[in-house]
Nucleic acid binder design. Structure first.
Lengths: 234, 234
DNA sequence: GTTTGTTGTTTGTTATAACAAACGACATGT
DNA sequence: ACATGTCGTTTGTTATAACAAACAACAAAC
């Protein structure tokens, strides 16, 4: 060990496919891909400025995780969820996120709960200002903040996977819907329950939150059962 | 359509990486890989008689699924579960497999239940004859037979993923353990509960089955917390 | 006009080579 | 002896080219 150790930081090795994977993941979560559209190797490779190999790796990973669907020619497709698929995901989400919340209630420290409380007030401000994208981002951090308190990495991983699976349609919610929920703030109720270590109530609130959002998205389904956004992307 | 359509069958396209993936999956589940060992691209490529590209694809998929761990050089490692990791998996398995069983109880048709009953008697014969490998295979088919009845593909997928994660140590059970369980046959009890559409009891039995196996595997842990087989593979 | 066959383009698959980072063996210096 | 530096080997990463399957457009035949 020499004196320079304090000023220098670790050099992280990050393969190109890892960066491609991260970018695709983020774009999916932000709803920047049209459900049903195909992700083309050479096209993405040109966008990223790499050869097709790293892109191929990234897409293979996403498909393996079930985040992307595979089309006819082993091509990667942005999933186009129908009512049945969404309902199934909601069932698993309720189960997993409910359990994570219950575990969190028995382990959370006051300081950690306060940090989540801060996110809640952030969220309220964003709703008032109709900042939907920013709201969705903090909203996600709030949920995963709870689940992280459970201290079960595998649970986190699987929950994140489920969010990714409905990523392309998560942005279909409109600000008006979020505003209309002021009366039934499951987020606040869940956090309050966690604070008083009432695992059952906390679980029930989170499940209610998931099911409420699920019902809203289900209501967006057209006659064929596919989930569409109210106003097509401009 | 011509007259030949009846005798000819669909020609399935199966890429090399898909076959490699399937073989690795099966080997993992059969416990043919030593926990902690590294899977080397060029070595496997030679075994399969292909270039490293398809092998790379297969390993990337397995790592993305969380079935394989990633080592220092982004290398793929056979997971070496410690007590904590195993416990976490068991929590999620109980939650998911419990829910699947509950759903199955409300949807199962008598004929489907009878088919599972047949598997149960097959299992009993195999235990009596100490055919461990064959038993584990039918045992797996029994469990997934129940979960399939729930009719929620995503649930199935995630449960299979969890089994794969502990695949390398599933074969650590010894015939003596299985035999010792004659008194508490959770499998039979779960199936009986499903037959009388008692979802809660069915769920409880499956959870008990999982936790019992979990306790056994936990008992194999050495002083450092790593799960080892009683008798090292010959 | 509909069907059928052809052809060119698109797109995922595989093999191969060049590359770079990490590791171990070995030698060297203190 | 121990630390350090060098070098060869191992091993994952990336780019590239050749390939094969699928699709669409178009032309020919009935």
């Amino acid at each position: 060990m020499n004196v320079a150790d304090r000023s220098l930081s670790r050099i992280a090795r990050e393969p190109l496919w890892d960066r491609a994977h991260a970018q695709l993941r983020e774009a999916l979560l932000a709803g920047r891909f049209e459900p049903g559209s195909a992700l083309v190797l050479r096209q993405l490779a040109e966008t990223f400025g790499t050869s097709i190999t790293p892109v191929r790796d990234a897409l293979a990973r996403l498909v393996a995780q079930g985040v992307l669907a595979q089309g006819p020619r082993n091509s990667a497709l942005v999933p186009d969820l129908d009512k049945g698929a969404l309902l199934d995901i909601m069932v698993v989400r309720s189960e997993l996120e409910g359990r994570a919340t219950r575990e969190a209630a028995s382990k959370a420290a006051p300081a950690e709960i306060d940090a989540l409380e801060a996110l809640l007030s952030e969220m309220r401000g964003m709703i008032a200002r109709r900042e939907l994208d920013a709201y969705l981002d903090v909203h996600r951090r709030f949920h995963f903040g709870i689940y992280a308190l459970a201290g079960i990495p595998i649970l986190d991983e699987m929950i994140e996977n489920l969010w990714l699976r409905c990523g392309p349609i998560l942005s279909f919610v409109v600000p008006e819907y979020v505003v209309s929920l002021k009366g039934t703030d499951h987020h606040q109720a869940a956090l309050d329950a966690i604070r008083r270590k009432d695992g059952s109530s906390a679980e029930a609130e989170i499940v209610a939150d998931i099911e409420e959002a699920g019902r809203y998205l289900l209501g967006l389904a057209d006659s064929s059962g596919r989930i569409r956004r109210r106003r097509p992307a401009g």
